[in-house]
Amino acid sequence: MKLKLHVWRQNGPNDKGRLETYEAPDVSPDQSFLEMLDDVNQALAKEGRDIIAFDHDCREGICGMCSQVINGKAHGGQERTTVCQLHMREFNDGDEIYIEPWKAKAFPIIKDLAVDRTGLEKIIQAGGYTSCHTGGVADGNALPIGKEAADYAMDAAECIGCGACVASCPNSSAMLFTSAKVAQLAVLPQGKVEAHRRVMAMTEAAKESDFGNCTNHYECQAACPKGIDVKFIAKLNREYLKALIK
C-alpha cells in the first residue's frame, strides 16, 4: 500500500504547529500503525531529517502511552483499540491519513505528537487510592466482596490512563478518567471509607489541572480504547451528591 500522511509537527509548547505531508510508500497490511510510522521515521532519519516524535511503549494496548488522533478520531476510532493495536489493513491503498496529537489546554505539546499528561497524574494524586499502609492490613478474604461489585470495579479499573477521553471530549474534560477511579474504589469496601473525600478532591484536581467540565456528550466512551462506560460518570455524580449532602 501507498499512503499519504498529514502529520502535525510542532517543536514545543510555544511553537506554532503545522501539518506536514509525508509519503509512506511501502506499507504492509499486517503492520501496526506505529510500525508504519517507524518506517516513515527510518526513511526520514536516513535523509538526515528530523523524525516524527510520538509517545509509545508497550505496543500491546495496555500501557496507555500511545496517543494520536487519526483522521479526527482519538486512537483512530476503531472500537476498543489503541493506536498501537490499530493495523494497516484497516486502511486502503492511496488513503490520506491525518495524524494529530491530543489537543487540550491540560495537555501541552512536548513535540509533534507527544504531549504532557501530568494533569492526569494530579487527579490520581489527589485521592485515587485507599490510604492503607504497607503491611498491617487484613487478610484478603476477611471482607467478602460480591462478584458483581468485584466485576464492576474491574470494569472501571481497566482504564489505561491514555487520555483519549480528554482528547475526544468537546470540552477536554477528564471526567471519564476521574470517574473510573472514583467508581472502582467507591464500590469496594476498602475504598468506601474515603469515598466522600476522594470524589471531592479528585474532581477539584481535575478542575485545577485545566480540564473542562463534563456536559454529557459521551464522546469519551466511544473513544476509550478500553470501553470504559459513562455509567461511571453517573456513579461519580452520585458519589458527589452523597458527599455534598452528608
Binding site: 487510592y129 485507599t130 492503607c132 504497607t134 503491611g135 492490613v137 487484613a138 487478610d139 484478603g140 471482607l143 467478602p144 466482596i145 460480591g146 462478584k147 468485584a150 466485576d151 470495579a153 474491574m154 479499573a157 472502582q184 474504589l185 469496594l188 476498602q190 475504598g191
Partner: peptide
C-alpha cells in the same frame, strides 16, 4: 495478596 486487596485491586472473586 492482602496488601493488594486493601489497595482496592479488583481480583477475581
Amino acid at each position: 495478596i492482602d496488601q493488594c486487596v486493601a489497595q482496592g485491586v479488583p481480583f477475581a472473586r
